[in-house]
Design a protein around this nucleic acid. Sequence first.
RNA 1: GCUCCCGUAGCUCAAUGGAUAGAGCAGCAGCCUUCUAAGCUGUUGGUUGUGGGUUCGAAUCCCGCCGGGGGCGCCA
Length: 606
Amino acid sequence: MFEKEQQVIEEKIQAYCVENDIPLVELKWQPIPFSGEWGISTSFFATAAAEAKAGKSKGLPVPARAQEMAEAARQFIGVAPGISHGEAVKGYLNLYFSTAEYARRVVDTILADGPRFGAGHPKHERVMVEYAQPNTHHSFHIGHYRNTILGESLARIVQFAGFETIRASYPGDLGLGVITVLWAYEKFYKGQEPTDIHERGQWLLKIYAEATNLLSEKENETSAEKAQRETYDGERREMYRKWDAGDPAVRQLWLETRAWSLEELRDILMLMDVQIDVWFYESEVDEPSKKIVDELIARGIASDERPAGPVIVKIDEKLGLAKEKYRVAVILRSDGTSLYLTKDLALARDKFEKFQANRSVYVVDNRQSLHFQQAFKILELWGFKQAEKCFHLAYGFVSLPEGAMSARRGRVVLFKEVYDEAIQRVLTVIAEKNPTMAAGERVGVAQKIGMGALAYSMLSVDNNKDMVFDINDALSFDGHTGPYIQNAVVRANSILRKSKIGGQTAETLGPAHFDFSLTTHEIELIEQMSRFSGVVQQAANEYRPLLVAVYAYDLANTFHSFYHAVPVLQTDDETIKMARLRLVASARQVLTNALNLLAISAPDVM
RNA sequence: GCUCCCGUAGCUCAAUGGAUAGAGCAGCAGCCUUCUAAGCUGUUGGUUGUGGGUUCGAAUCCCGCCGGGGGCGCCA
């Protein structure tokens, strides 16, 4: 936020080094990492080490020489604009800001920029983020939720950082699993249909689990049971064949039941405040993907082993690798039908060519790492330049305390169940903690808090870590949680609500003066808020919503401490009161902006 | 066999080459006639799985080993 001042100082340090024949390596600035102190610092270790290597050192150990340089640089810089004083400590040069001036500038900027505070400059680059890829004919479970909240948060962060952003969903509407549901529905449940959107979606999952059970080989099964099972399987295969041949009745049934799943999905996305820009369906890239296979065969990249075997790409061999790494990938079944991998080839191309993406991020769990490595390598072999702009953002999969989730066995935790439970639990807490809250307001508040708790529990764990979903942890409202951060916003609100002065609010009152003795709580608050845009950029560059989640918590923590220790409305001095009111309004704004990047909104009261 | 991910306080997790490895939960001791106690303050708790290496400096990078999980020719 203070680029100009920083640049002036950098130039001075560079001048100092030139004058003294010091090979300056880098100037990496970081905030002074001590709470309640405000400024920037840089170390001289790298430069001192470089000097020693170049044989220019005077025989001093690196740390001592770094300290010497820091001290000399401090003296050389002397008086710099915006800097109150400097100090050289343990090889670091610490420069402290002129508090009053910066405090005012930070607060004024936040209140002027409002919801845009922290946003990056336009990057003139378009990023497509693909997430929310549940299979149809199943129901949306808590693993899909991790995927979706991660993708949505990433999309918001990338967009806020200044990239043009396209949100893409890719439901799996094809394959044996889907056909299994169609078969069982037609055979056992035809004509039935629950009316509620969620009941209907969940019912399909139940049918799937039942059907899988009927079709699985049992231990000690009798010959009659075996015959029964094989008959069923034959019927299912026949259903698949009909689908592939475009049989109107089967296609009609497929579209109808698919719509049930998609309606449920859209309803959940609405609850999550997710708006998808582009819907891809596996069924739509099915045909185009087969054409790519033909081309790969024609160009000798793929080997066609039909009819005895499938169409394969021997990736390691093509790359001339000695050890097996990308293996052999099957890109077309021997019967000519496409696979998941086949379709991803066509989809990748469409993303860049039809939607003019410059980068393509796939938010998919880490069990599919090999799949994407293969897909990207095949694209590369095919000569598709943008293959290098494809990035698989892998995240650890979600399991349950009793083991992995399994749709087949019906052992899943559905998102909707957790959502309903969340609201019930929050309503209980409201009844206990805020009994005066208006009845009509409670459900809306409960939704925000419940969703905040859930979202934060997912986003506050780094994406590459596997996670065991425990509903009690996920719906905790104390400590390191979403509601803790929401509560900071609510407390700020409460102060501001009571602060109205002649119809004016803290935002509309003019600039406040901070030239009084600030407490460490105030300094820390201002320091953290000034770092927000840097956090956004880093999170966008590294595709890591976690960084924003951590930031939001730290800021809320600082605000809670401030709230407890520093009086605002009870301050007698009007100047200080104004300044603090604007500080509170700023904190509320930055917290709100950060929460928004996590797809969390704070209620007005809680 | 090959390959990917993980291992940090009793538990769940931060810190990804820099200053004193930090939070939450659990435990202990305090704080509501004072802007919302879903909060605040204090405190207990660490040989960062292990052995080497690189570096002025390693939880972080490299190699080996141990432990856990995932993936590997016609599932998605």
